[in-house]
């Protein structure tokens, strides 16, 4: 009797494994569900937050909406799962979310060890320093002996140690858990310096009562390419993520916006615009989507530049300059260079 039960249990376990590998076609699952499940952060200024109505907004949810629009033609066909730094990877690996758009730095180990596929980088970030202007510091190299507020258990902590060791400087770390705690500690003079991703520093400084009293130092000590990601092993689904983001960047390059996309499709003679918007070729069908996939994605929240301006650009409370995240060909030092759609 016992062995029989054991066999049954093993059989059930085997069935569970088989059915999990059988669902490799994420696109089919998503279409069957009728919506995409998108993992976002539980809150990063500008990148993910809830509005008054309780809807998720921000740079990352906008990407989720664009992918949903590419699949269903409906930017609302997406449900958001807030994930923390600790739960994000298991949520994706276990299939709880189909796509993770959550300020995640692309690294070797996350790609290879954790078995995720990263899309194109949608935000180039790097670790920076913020100090009070009254300190009279103009370079991170003058920070020897400073007390520094640093989030524990992050790559920024390791970067900081590397940087100070490489430059033969000492520092005293003040460990903190969240950005809000860092704001409080820094404003209460518990530390001289606050270090985290430059985008986070800018957003934090923008929220201060007197932003002018604080300066961001010019040194950026690490590379933090933030990108959306999906599970390994489903290339079609990874392609949809990759090319939806590429389409948004190409749209900015070609001057296609949410407002003029339909008109461009009808009237533009440029072959690259026609290919992007589905007027020419069978690009969408090759992805397993409709040929107006990119058109719908662009109409969801606009092209990359429009999303940037709306949530984190210089005119928002976050106030991030385009910098590295500008287009490669506008001569302002941007490195956004999306592969062409052809």
């Amino acid at each position: 009797m016992k062995t029989k039960l054991l066999t049954l249990a093993l059989g059930a376990a085997a069935f569970a494994t088989v059915s999990s590998s059988a669902s490799a076609a994420t696109l089919d699952d998503v279409k069957a569900k009728g919506f995409m499940q998108c993992g976002v952060s539980t809150g990063v200024p500008g990148f993910a937050f809830t509005d008054d109505a309780g809807d998720w907004q921000g740079f990352d949810p906008a990407l989720c909406r664009a992918v949903a629009a590419a699949i269903f033609g409906d930017p609302k066909a997406v449900k958001f799962t807030p994930t923390t730094g600790k739960t994000r990877f298991t949520a994706l690996a276990s299939g709880e979310v189909d796509l993770l758009a959550r300020n995640t730095t692309e690294t070797f180990s996350r790609d290879v060890d954790l078995k995720f596929t990263f899309g194109p980088v949608n935000y180039y970030d790097g670790q920076g320093f913020m100090v009070r202007k009254s300190l009279g510091v103009s370079s991170a190299l003058n920070l020897s002996g400073a007390t520094i507020c640093i989030q524990t258990g992050t790559t920024t902590e390791l970067n900081l140690a590397d940087y100070f060791r490489a430059n033969n400087m000492t520092y005293e770390p003040v460990p903190i858990e969240t950005n809000a705690e860092a704001q409080e500690k820094y404003l209460a003079n518990a530390c001289d310096v606050y270090t985290t991703d430059a985008s986070g520093l800018a957003a934090t400084r923008a929220a201060f009562e007197k932003p002018g009293d604080h300066a961001l130092l010019p040194e950026i000590i690490s590379k933090e390419p933030l990108a959306p990601l999906v599970r390994h092993g489903d290339d079609q689904w990874a392609d949809i993520m990759k090319w939806t983001l590429n389409a948004l960047i190409n749209a900015e390059e070609l001057g296609v916006t949410a407002a003029n996309a339909d008109e461009m499709k009808a009237s533009s003679k440029l072959p690259s615009i026609q290919r992007l918007l589905g007027g020419e070729g069978e690009m969408g069908a090759a992805l397993g989507l409709g040929n107006d996939w990119a058109l719908n994605a662009i109409k969801a929240n606009g092209n990359y530049g429009e999303i940037y301006e709306k949530y984190i650009g210089p005119n928002t409370a976050i106030g991030l300059e385009r910098g590295l995240n500008g287009l490669w060909n506008n001569g302002k030092g941007g490195i956004l260079y999306a592969a062409p759609i052809r």
Partner: peptide, 27 residues
């Protein structure tokens, strides 16, 4: 439960504080 991403009162503080209207709220 806020640690596993369920937005209970403590969990929902984070997205509210991240919105551009209320970024900077602490106590």
């Amino acid at each position: 439960v806020s640690i596993i991403g369920i937005l209970d009162p403590i969990g929902i503080m984070q997205p509210i504080r991240s919105s551009s209207e209320w970024n900077g709220i602490i106590w």
